[in-house]
């Protein structure tokens, strides 16, 4: 990944965090809120592969961990694992299915939330398993499924190198 791509990705993560802590925090369905910080590693895994997915998952997770009162590093761990897994698994799948990114985001977000709750419980935060997990999984998965298309486009822009530009009048 080029230095320019790293800077762009960090800007995307910062803006996503701001979006999460402002607009999305006010959207509550039965008390549960969407969580786009899990969507970033999923989109990065889809666009760039397992290494990029893991890298974005770690960075986005650490950024989220700075602002939530849960174990520091837990979001980073879950983001890294999910980003890597999505990149590794989706690489071998035919992607020409309409809504492929949304389906992957939906499934991977559900897994990410459950993984977060289970790992949190292992770390002593047993109350993570006592929240309305089905509701949180549903809200986060559906929201990320809806937002997957724009997220993939944004990450594709972030990862693009200058040589990826479409020449004037030409098609790629």
């Amino acid at each position: 990944m080029s230095a320019r791509a790293v800077v762009r990705t960090l800007v995307v993560i910062a803006l996503a965090l701001l979006l999460q802590m402002t607009v999305l925090l006010d959207i509550r369905v039965g008390g549960a809120t969407p969580d786009v910080m899990f969507l970033l590693p999923i989109a990065a895994g889809l666009v760039g592969g397992p290494i990029e997915g893991a890298g974005v998952g770690f960075a986005a997770g650490i950024a989220a961990d700075l602002l939530v009162p849960t174990p520091f590093g837990l979001s980073a761990l879950v983001g890294t694992l999910v980003g890597f897994a999505v990149g590794a698994v989706s690489g071998g799948i035919v992607r020409d299915v309409r809504g492929f990114a949304s389906l992957v985001a939906l499934a991977a977000s559900a897994i990410a939330v459950i993984l977060y709750a289970v790992l949190g419980a292992v770390l002593g935060e047993t109350q993570f398993l006592h929240v309305d997990l089905a509701l949180v999984v549903t809200v986060v998965a559906v929201a990320n499924g809806v937002l997957a298309g724009p997220a993939v486009k944004i990450l594709r822009w972030a990862f693009a190198s200058p040589s990826d530009r479409v020449p004037a009048g030409g098609r790629r």
Binding site: F58, I62, F72, G73, L74, L77, T80, L81, L123
Partner: peptide, 11 residues
């Protein structure tokens, strides 16, 4: 490596 780093931070 990032997984190990995350676990180290948590610990």
């Amino acid at each position: 490596m990032l997984v190990l780093l995350s676990i180290t931070i948590i610990t």
